[in-house]
Amino acid sequence: MIPIYPILFAFAIFSIGAAGIATSRHMVIMVFAVEVVLVASALLGTVFYFYFVGSSSILPFLFAIWAIAASEAILLVIFYRYMVRADVSLDVTKLSRIKE
């Protein structure tokens, strides 16, 4: 298979994720978009390594990406519970109310 298609596929996923971060106002949805970006990065790295290097040395990078995604999910739950308990809106445009 021509490797340019998976690369463009990863680019497209990354683009949607990055645009989702920029255009969303919901904190949880923004974190979901970051997860999409991380998944696109994993796919792109895998395609590059296995088509152009031909080895399995991408595994540490993939584990690092998945670890970042897992850490982000953990932190999301923490922030979410804190915001719900503090009765803070999940709309990021209203987060300045936290200072009040």
Binding site: F11, A12, F14, S15, I16, A18, A19, G20, A22, T23, S24, R25, H26, I29, D91
Partner: peptide, 17 residues
């Protein structure tokens, strides 16, 4: 609540791509 601007999302994702 409507959290995402869908039109802007579509346009911006195409531009970034």
């Amino acid at each position: 609540f409507r959290h995402s601007n869908r039109l802007l999302l579509a346009i911006l994702s195409v531009v970034i791509f």
